[in-house]
Design a protein around this nucleic acid. Sequence first.
DNA 1: GAATAATTTTAACAAATGTTAAAAATTTTA
DNA 2: TAAAATTTTTAACATTTGTTAAAATTATTC
Lengths: 203, 203
Amino acid sequence: MGRGNFKFGKMGEKIVISLADCFQGYHFLNSDSIDRLDQISQKLVCKRNSVLIRQDKIQKDIYFLASGLARVYYETADRQITLDFVSPGGTLISMNSYVHDTPGYENIDLLEDSIVYQIDQKQLFALYESDIAIANWGRKMAELEFIKAEQRTMSKLFNTAQERYAELLEKYPQYIQRIKLGYIASYLGVSQVTLSRIRANIL
Amino acid sequence: MGRGNFKFGKMGEKIVISLADCFQGYHFLNSDSIDRLDQISQKLVCKRNSVLIRQDKIQKDIYFLASGLARVYYETADRQITLDFVSPGGTLISMNSYVHDTPGYENIDLLEDSIVYQIDQKQLFALYESDIAIANWGRKMAELEFIKAEQRTMSKLFNTAQERYAELLEKYPQYIQRIKLGYIASYLGVSQVTLSRIRANIL
DNA sequence: GAATAATTTTAACAAATGTTAAAAATTTTA
DNA sequence: TAAAATTTTTAACATTTGTTAAAATTATTC
């Protein structure tokens, strides 16, 4: 655990995660393999409200969030559904686009000024064919992202919005301060009016 | 597409998928690698209502469904939630257990007499370290299962139970005949009473 | 710091779905 | 094929949540 679940140190200073730490979070890599990944990576400094990934665009590359805060959401004509908020150390990826070179499903916006590392997918795929450690690193990434997504899904299926709000309040109290309640409501799967009722403890 | 989405041929004869076809569904493999996977696989003939995977047990191995029908579901003290129905060609896996050697989240039961191929996880993990093609095959498996799970999640988030029932009726009409409506309701995310109302077109 | 814009809460009402329980229909078993 | 068991539908009611709109609060800008 620990990936993507922090943002400020205990004194409130901004946390910045190194690229190597982002890599190592998934799987052990020796320094040669880390160097190879480093060579196909690029550091980006992004402004608040930047759009990283759009569902209607092909966005094959993977991003690691080094600092800042991101929101992952699906969108239709009349609705946005927030999947997750991602903190430093977390991975930002549109799996369908990464795998299939087609438009994906998710939108990813940065809610605050952020630093991200971008990994070139084409070059990464080449490394998968030549470096078995990196191939297994990529495998681990997909497996662990699957499990994270599954845990999110289960939390939504089995817990009420009230319970999920209480959990958020306990585990990520900063989120309540930093993220607008409309987004939180959309993450919890209820209207903002219902979230207000939950907060007012009418329920 | 096509993986796990069929069961009877047009004459109604039972479809049986070969192990090699199950493997190749994810990623190209040369015959050497297929042989190595074959050597760590075992064919199991299972009766209707067999339990393949239990959420409270460690079940690291992967199964491929060669024939029959399976149901994947989560369970709590007071509720069962059906995630998916799997047809021949599909993969049956508890990702958390497979990855972490701990109890997983899903239960998988066979709704009909079935044939499954079981792949030994421990030996598979050894192959991941020595055969780069198999490492990439395992990567593709996780990636494609992620995308499938994501599509299921999105369908539930954006479509009404009514729309999802209509889709099921169109794409998998056999399911409505072969699967009890309590399971279908649980898959759609509504009570069985609501499903009856949908079927009666009261809505 | 006053004015404007954005966000959050509250109120009132309508609609959809769950719950419980009983009736009807279907399938299985003897 | 009759009886028993299981599955599905229907009915009545209560509860929850969404919707719309306005008020209150907070944040931003000039």
